[in-house]
């Protein structure tokens, strides 16, 4: 599926299967938060990012209201991904909001800024995917830090109908 940020003219492409995988991972940790890294590649003169995979943290702390991702093993895993053809790089983060809307909290916004400014991060515009999970389904919210402001993406119009049907069909309740 494709998400577009009309305001800044940038887009995100992510495979439905990867979204399914992330939702299942989040659902496995429900009602606590869970998350990981998004890796992918920039295409179309860096106007689009294709998210290809997730990298999961070896260590993390989580509760119903917070998720702290560790760094153990990340350098090696990201190094291996960068040597693939095509090369994959770190492009952002994802985490769940159990029983919450997929909108960034103040902590989420400042986390993106901290990441963008970090000396070991070479991308300027980290993405954030928030998955709002409930026992009846999920909602996705994609965000990017651009020129120090958080911008949201919308599902591309011609895909909305198809995806709405998909979202209705998928439920992750009953844990």
């Amino acid at each position: 599926m494709k998400f577009v940020c009309q305001h800044i003219g940038l887009s995100i492409v992510i495979d439905d299967k990867l979204v399914d995988q992330l939702c299942r991972l989040g659902s496995d940790h429900y009602p606590k938060e869970y998350g990981g890294l998004l890796v992918g590649r920039y295409v179309n003169n860096n106007k689009e990012v294709i998210i290809e995979e997730t990298v999961l943290p070896k260590k993390f702390k989580s509760s119903a209201f917070s998720f702290e991702r560790g760094v153990e093993g990340l350098r090696k895993t990201l190094g291996d991904l960068s040597r693939r053809n095509p090369s994959l790089i770190y492009v952002g983060e994802w985490h769940t909001h159990p029983d919450g809307r997929p909108v960034p909290s103040g902590t989420d916004s400042s986390a993106l800024r901290t990441i963008a400014e970090h000396k070991d991060v070479f991308i300027k515009n980290p993405l954030l995917l928030i998955i709002g999970l409930s026992n009846t389904g999920y909602e996705l919210g994609f965000y990017v830090l651009y020129k120090n402001e958080i911008h949201s993406y919308e599902l591309e119009y011609n895909q909305q109908h198809k995806t709405e049907i998909n979202l209705i069909e998928k439920t992750y309740g009953g844990k």
């Binding site: 800044i8 003219g9 940038l10 938060e33 998350g35 890294l37 920039y42 003169n45 860096n46 106007k47 990012v49 209201f65 917070s66 998720f67 702290e68 991702r69 560790g70 760094v71 990340l74 350098r75 990201l78 190094g79 960068s82 790089i89 770190y90 492009v91 983060e93 985490h95 909290s105 103040g106 902590t107 989420d108 986390a111 901290t114 990441i115 970090h118 070991d120 991060v121 070479f122 991308i123 300027k124 515009n125 980290p126 990017v144 651009y146």
Partner: peptide, 21 residues
Amino acid sequence: NNSYGVKTGIGLSVPPVTRFG
């Protein structure tokens, strides 16, 4: 003119320990 930006100097991006809410 907009695009996903990359900082000058090429390196492997490894994000720090990060807390979300």
